[in-house]
Amino acid sequence: MRTDVTTKELMACVMARDLEDGLGVPVGANLPVPRAAVLLAHLMHGPDMLVLLSWTRANLVDVPELRPFEFITDWRAAQWGESYWAHDDGFLNMKQRSNWIFYVGGIQIDQFGNSNLFGVGDDHSRLKFRGPGGVGTGNMAAFTNRYYLYSQTHNPRIFVPKVDFVSALGWGEGPGTREKWHIPGGGPRYCYTPLGVFDFEPETKRMRVKSVHPGVTVDDVVKATGFELVIPGEVPFTPEPTDEELEILRTRVDPTGMLRS
């Protein structure tokens, strides 16, 4: 990979390419790479995307510089807002539309794309480690037509065979789980990490290597994952950012260089 491009910038560009115009996308403040990806897609090829910054509806195509905000309640996000959605009203609106997507991380992610933000341990009342909680991701994973997993770290502690608790349902225990429980949403599409991009094998719903980032080998990914991945015969490298993507990313989406730190 080009020496002047960081892994975070690479990930943001790759994530942005999979977001088509017309989507509704809530943008949180605690995931700077997905946030950058959504804004990059909006500026490059999604003028009619509905972007929610701290639950303010905004079209940002003509905003010259989008400085990051620090918290989901940060008032600075409202400077671009055209209207505001109350939290519960926002979820109701999402249920009534089929073109919503979102990103979710996890303190654990398993081979079927289930995410755990609750905590680690056998007993929910005596957790070894407590996470931030589901924060609405369980509902969103249930009814959005697709969503994306994202992790800022890739190691066997996060990527485990089975999560201790499920805060956002992926493919459950494999094929047929969502249908069995009458969960209507489309499930996770991709998982993005600093090592590569992963999808889910259609027949088994197990996590599969889609691409590895430049400088990363398949063996690196296998060693960093706590379960057996589906590995195709040929695994390509993740396409690098274009000059146009980097220009917009660095001058308008990430002018403070958060993704380069």
Score class of each variant (00 low, 15 high):
15 M>T: 08
25 V>L: 11
147 Y>M: 01
139 N>W: 11
28 G>H: 03
50 L>Y: 07
151 S>F: 04
136 G>S: 03
112 F>M: 09
188 P>S: 02
16 A>L: 10
176 G>F: 06
113 G>I: 06
17 R>A: 14
252 R>H: 06
29 A>S: 15
121 G>S: 01
230 V>W: 00
256 T>F: 08
217 T>A: 11
237 F>I: 13
48 D>H: 15
202 P>Y: 09
201 E>W: 05
181 W>I: 14
214 P>W: 08
18 D>F: 11
124 H>V: 15
194 P>M: 05
107 I>H: 00
21 D>T: 10
51 V>P: 11
136 G>E: 02
261 S>W: 14
4 D>P: 03
121 G>R: 01
79 Q>D: 13
231 I>D: 01
123 D>S: 07
237 F>W: 08
148 Y>A: 01
206 R>Q: 13
71 F>Y: 13
42 H>R: 05
103 Y>K: 01
218 V>L: 06
147 Y>N: 00
131 G>V: 00
68 P>H: 08
25 V>D: 03
98 S>P: 03
124 H>R: 13
108 Q>F: 01
14 V>H: 09
170 G>S: 07
23 L>S: 06
16 A>R: 07
258 M>E: 15
9 E>T: 07
238 T>N: 11
125 S>W: 04
177 T>M: 06
249 L>G: 13
168 A>G: 00
64 P>H: 10
261 S>R: 15
196 G>Q: 08
26 P>S: 10
65 E>Q: 14
